[in-house]
Design a protein around this nucleic acid. Structure first.
Length: 492
RNA sequence: CGGGGUGUAGCGCAGUUGGCUAGCGCGCCACGUUCGGGACGUGGAGGCCGGAAGUUCGAGUCUUCUCACCCCGACCA
């Protein structure tokens, strides 16, 4: 058992915060709402980036980079967009500091006021579409399939590490198309990429669907999302893909000549996932002993701990284990041989478990004699004795077992915490008796009903799944005929 | 942004109605004994008590302001 480590059942928030710090993923910085992502946490993010980047390129996208700063006037070009974003932005007003005339440090030089303020990007649609205007003249210039890896700033009121920070890292894809159909297909294609990434690499099951109009991205005609369920039953929006229609093309006057020599506005999409995925990863799999990582995203796959009683034994073990490490590394695995003498094996076990290393191999003098070792799996705590000549294949089998087992466990939690409800009373009853979860209920599509459900139950509409299990019924709120089966829930 | 809470060593905390040299546990450093689930002994280093102003002979302790973090909401990736 991890010492002084909070249990999920006692205080889920405290457990989460403590885990982020103790697993060495991140810590609070000196800047309000901003975190420092530590090397181990960043290594996990890099693995995510690497895989996603590969998938983006496989679907024909290229990386580019656009400015951090956006002229203030750009934000107001698209009416809904400014409504959704303008209130939570950091603004640059000056470009120079000067020595304080009173002798204390530096102050903003009032003479260096910018003619037009610059906004630190909360998202890049506006700066990118102002650029695309120059890139697009003809249907031959389309489609443009760009992605950028970047940081963005949103001045959030309440921050939580990885889940909501004032500055966060993400990728944002911005594509331009000649037809509505092509843009809609792109929107869906990228959502599918996100879903595949979540399920295959993060071992996180997700629901795919539409956001309700109320929950849409500011300026989008349709927002697709993947929603994941955390262990406490709350929903986490893991990725979004927006069909932007011609809104931004019109706002930035981006037109092209089609084959018939007619001027048309360009169709747009944007899609993104952020470091919030780290939060999803943590809250989906981890336990009261710390982080649990799926093998595909673990910076270290296998930790090897030698068990010995003397320096002489240590030397012998080092000799025996060196070729084992080499053999596993030759298979592409990252192996950490932890022979630090200053820590006892039990201490190392706990540290490795806190950091979520998928497999641990224990080898002592007796094991060498018997030609065997112990393999312990992080995700389920299972320990098995394995002959050394079967080690490589067993390691592979155990890693695959972990990926599949973690996914199934998460899926089971999601299923167990999904409740079908017909009325608002039933929603409240389900939440009270079984705790947070996904509420499945029919909705008539009226925004007033959506608001009323939120007000009376605390759960909001999270997702209108593509897979509609029910085609018709009565609205959970007003009782009128309804044709949308909606997932409701509390969200992070 | 509304309500509540917390800031004292790297971490977790104690510090009485204001009083003299600010303590404890863990961790850290040195040496020795240990090592199959967070070992132990001895010695040692480490502090503008979140920041600023004020009250006072005297402030970790009282007052005001400010900053940051945590929790519950509202908002969002």
């Amino acid at each position: 058992m991890a010492k002084d480590f909070p249990k999920r059942s006692e205080n889920y928030s405290e457990w989460y915060n403590e885990l982020v710090v103790r697993a060495d993923l991140a810590e609070q910085s000196a800047v309000r709402g901003c975190m420092v992502i530590k090397p181990y946490g960043y290594a996990i993010w890099e693995k995510m980036q690497h895989q996603l980047d590969k998938m983006f390129k496989e679907t024909g996208h290229q990386n580019a980079y656009f400015p951090l700063f956006i002229p203030k006037s750009f934000l107001s070009r698209e009416a809904e967009h400014v409504e959704g974003f303008a209130k939570e932005c950091a603004v640059v007003t000056h470009h120079r500091l000067m020595n304080d005339p009173n002798g204390k440090g530096v102050v903003v030089d009032p003479a260096a006021k910018l003619e037009e303020e610059l906004i630190v990007r909360p998202t890049s649609e506006t700066i990118i579409w102002s650029t695309y205007k120059n890139w697009i003249k003809s249907y031959r210039d389309l489609p443009i399939l760009c992605n950028q890896w970047a940081n963005v700033v949103r001045w959030e009121m309440r921050t939580r590490m990885f889940l909501r920070t004032a500055e966060f890292l993400w990728q944002e894809g911005h594509t331009a198309h000649a037809t509505r159909e092509e843009a809609e297909a792109e929107t869906r294609r990228m959502l599918d990429v996100y879903a595949e990434f979540a399920e295959k690499y993060m071992a996180v099951p997700v629901l795919k669907g539409h956001k309700s109009p109320n929950e849409r991205f500011a300026g989008a005609l349709d927002t697709l999302c993947i929603e994941a369920m955390m262990q406490d039953g709350k929903a986490l929006q893991a990725g979004t893909s927006h069909f932007l229609g011609q809104n931004f093309a019109k706002a930035f006057e981006v037109q092209f000549l089609n084959k018939e020599n007619k001027l048309e506005y360009v169709w747009a999409t944007s899609w993104g996932v952020s470091t919030r995925l780290m939060g999803a990863l943590i809250m989906t799999h981890s336990d009261d002993n710390g982080l649990v990582l799926p093998p595909h995203l673990a910076p270290i796959h296998v930790a090897i701990v030698p068990i010995c009683k003397s320096d002489e034994q240590q030397r012998q073990l080092d000799e025996h284990i060196a070729p084992i490490v080499k053999a596993l590394e030759a298979k592409g695995l990252v192996v950490k041989y932890d022979n630090r003498p200053e820590y006892k094996p039990g201490w190392k076990f706990n540290e490795q478990e806190m950091r979520g290393i998928p497999l641990r191999i224990e080898i002592g003098p007796k094991d060498i004699e018997n030609g065997q070792c112990v393999i312990a799996s992080r995700w389920n705590g299972e320990k098995v004795i394995v002959p050394l000549d079967k080690l490589e294949e067993t390691v592979y089998a155990k890693l695959e077992e972990a990926r599949e087992g973690m996914y199934n466990k998460a899926l089971e939690n999601m299923n167990n915490r999904t409740y079908s409800c017909e009325t608002i009373d039933e929603i409240n009853k389900a939440l009270e008796e079984k705790g947070d979860g996904f509420i499945k209920a029919m909705w008539c599509g009226d925004e007033a009903c959506e608001d009323e459900v939120k007000e009376k139950t605390g759960v909001g509409s999270r997702c209108i799944p593509f897979m509609q299990e029910r085609k018709a019924g009565n609205c959970v709120c007003c009782g009128k005929p309804a044709d949308k089966y909606v997932i409701w829930g509390r969200q992070y």
